[in-house]
Amino acid sequence: MLHSRLNRKNRNEAGGGGGELSSTRDSSFRRREGPPDRRAAGSYSKSRSRRHGGLCSLSLLPRRWEMAEEERSFLTVSGQSITLQRCQHSAACREFQVRCPRLQLRSLSAATCSVWLAAYGLFVLTQNSVVLSAAIFVTLIGLLVYLHFVKIDQESLLIVGSLGIQMTSSYASGKESTAFIEMSQIKDVVINEAIYMQKVIYYLCILLQDPVEPHVVSEVVPLFQSSKPRLDCLVEVYKSCQEILGQKKKS
């Protein structure tokens, strides 16, 4: 499965992408020949087990030395705590992962209890046992749908200076959806403001270039849509993205 994913990525790149990537890997490897940071190495193995796929698992180089990782916790606009994990694969390749808190037993049981209590109340009124079985099905199906389509546990952003930006969101059920934007389409990465649900929030977005007129923004792609981190977290990601985009513009 992993391989097919990568192949798709490479086709997206219209050839040559894979080679370019490993060459950047090479250079990073050479540069980081000193002793690896102990803390970084420790957290690295932890994150390794979580990751399922993506561009960074392509290389066959010894992975222990190639990354500098750091983890910081932030808040979302609604006040939940999230962790932002930043790992630097090379000078032009960085990955950001925003992890939301997992589904809590408290909220799960609260939702289940309320549905079942309501169903039991109806059952007392109507004396019809179909209500109870319906409630069980509703809870089960609701939970499945919620885990599979709604609840996003982790959103990651991989930015490779020579290739583009890949956005992955992993659902609580393990489902992953990935989108990739080629570097030639990307005009800029900016922080914008929007009115959202009785709030005014900042969000990070990618501006896409119109292929015909390069000065026109054809589309705005919002990032970290489900976690909605606060401004301090966005600024962190924004600065890194700008560094890489800046390098690309210089070259």
């Binding site: 800029d188 900016v190 922080i191 914008n192 929007a194 501006l207 923004v217 705005v220 919002p222 401004l231 600024v235 924004y238 600065k239 700008q242």
Partner: peptide, 12 residues
């Protein structure tokens, strides 16, 4: 200057 770039006319 590095703080935040404000897009001039991009809105959602």
């Amino acid at each position: 200057k590095e703080r935040v770039q404000i897009p001039r006319d991009a809105t959602i």
